[in-house]
């Protein structure tokens, strides 16, 4: 599907002291796509999410969302424009009930309770809606974060390692859920993930980052065949995508 990009990183650069965490990083995410963002630990993926969502200021470059440069906007403004994200380490509101967690995220009052319950149902948490979020397991907290972000009705959802800590059965329904959101509601996803089977099996496009820069971009097969990606992961030895054997 060739659509106008809904999200673009344009020459984004960010340094922490002497470390260039993100270095002249550019790529685009097309509308309605599920895009995987992969790369070794410390490649700068989470930092890029932080920049996109406004938690971190970029040094130079642009974040373009639906054709508009949003680099100067505050995090809450970006969220209200339809850019939602989850965190690598979950950030639920621990001493608030699940329903209350959901309510915080909604900008309006329209069908508040129905929607909150509906999304909690999708992630199998509706029976626990009156419990504190701190009572959930780590994997369940990840699911709550995903359900919560839907209250914003975002156009683009950035997921930071959604599969980490989620059991295989639940992961399957989670992935089905992501596809459903995309297919029926036209949502776009950018997903950071280390689970290669997941990335190869579910992403329309894969972007590979290493040492802050995009080193490759393309379909799963193209990435699997790419020498540079192989090097970035393991030096010269085996290809990571050939040996991924865990998870979904």
């Amino acid at each position: 599907m060739m659509q106008a990009p809904v999200f673009e990183a344009r020459a984004v650069t960010k340094s922490f002291a002497s470390l260039r965490a993100v270095d002249d990083c550019s790529f685009a995410v097309e509308k309605g796509a599920i895009v995987g963002l992969i790369g070794p630990n410390g490649a700068g993926k989470t930092t890029l999410f932080d920049i996109a969502s406004g938690a971190t200021r970029l040094d130079s470059g642009q974040i373009v969302f639906r054709g508009e440069d949003i680099s100067a906007l505050k995090p809450h403004q970006r969220a209200l424009k339809g850019l939602g994200r989850t965190f690598q380490l979950t950030r639920v509101f621990p001493k608030m009930t699940l329903m209350e967690n959901m309510f915080v995220a909604s900008p309006g009052d329209h069908r508040l309770h129905e929607r909150a319950r509906e999304y909690l149902e999708l992630v199998n948490l509706v029976d626990r809606r009156h419990e504190y979020a701190s009572d959930l397991s780590y994997g369940q907290q990840k699911l709550l974060e995903l359900a919560r972000i839907l209250m914003l009705d975002p156009e683009l959802i950035l997921l930071d390692e959604p599969a980490a800590g989620v059991n295989p059965t639940l992961l399957k329904s989670l992935l089905a859920f992501i596809h459903e959101l995309r297919d029926t509601w036209g949502k776009t996803f950018l997903i950071i993930e280390h689970n290669m089977n997941l990335v190869m099996g579910h992403c329309d496009k894969v972007v590979v980052m290493s040492a802050g820069s995009v080193i490759a971009e393309g379909s799963g097969e193209e990435i699997q065949a790419n020498e540079e990606v192989l090097e970035a992961y393991f030096g010269k030895s085996t290809h990571p995508l050939g040996r991924a054997g865990h998870g979904a």
Binding site: H76, A79, F87, K95, E100
Partner: peptide, 16 residues
């Protein structure tokens, strides 16, 4: 309350 619980998460959920 969400500010008390986790201000950054609240911001990313559209809370001013």
């Amino acid at each position: 309350l969400s500010i008390r619980e986790d201000e950054r998460a609240a911001e990313n959920l559209g809370v001013n």
